[in-house]
């Protein structure tokens, strides 16, 4: 009887000695949080690392899309720039009626030009 009691006390003491540190370690690492709180906290707060992250994919898509759009815009701008600036192009002339005709000796000093399209 004494022997049995001694074995029971020894096994309980061993179990307690091993189990208490392990149990306290589990308590430190695994804080119990609701799953919604983890999801709301974002990817950095997630207790596991996902092999694939939708947010990353979206970022890439957005980047690709925006790069494509930017490229398109750049191309368009380049085209327009090419059209307008190739060879230091002269400015558009002043329309009739806004300034006097040039003094090239061909015009008198009378009435300003009149134009009609039929």
């Amino acid at each position: 009887m004494k022997t049995t009691l001694a074995v029971l006390i020894a096994s309980t003491a061993l179990t307690a000695a091993i189990a208490l540190p392990a149990w306290s370690a589990i308590q430190d690492r695994a804080e119990t949080r609701p799953i919604t709180a983890i999801l709301e906290a974002g990817p950095d707060a997630q207790p596991v690392i996902l092999a694939s992250n939708d947010d990353d994919d979206d970022d890439n898509d957005n980047r690709r899309r925006s790069e494509r759009n930017n490229d398109d815009d750049d191309d368009d701008d380049d085209d327009e720039d090419d059209d307008d600036n190739r060879g230091a192009r002269a400015p558009n002339p002043a329309p009739a009626g806004t300034v006097a005709p040039p003094a090239n000796g061909l015009f008198g000093n009378g009435a300003p030009p009149k134009v009609q399209m039929n």
């Binding site: 002339p93 040039p102 030009p113």
Partner: peptide
């Protein structure tokens, strides 16, 4: 291509 030559004597293109 000197546009000063046609300042004041420029109008729309003709259809």
């Amino acid at each position: 291509g000197d546009t000063a030559q046609i300042n004041g004597i420029t109008g729309a293109s003709v259809g």
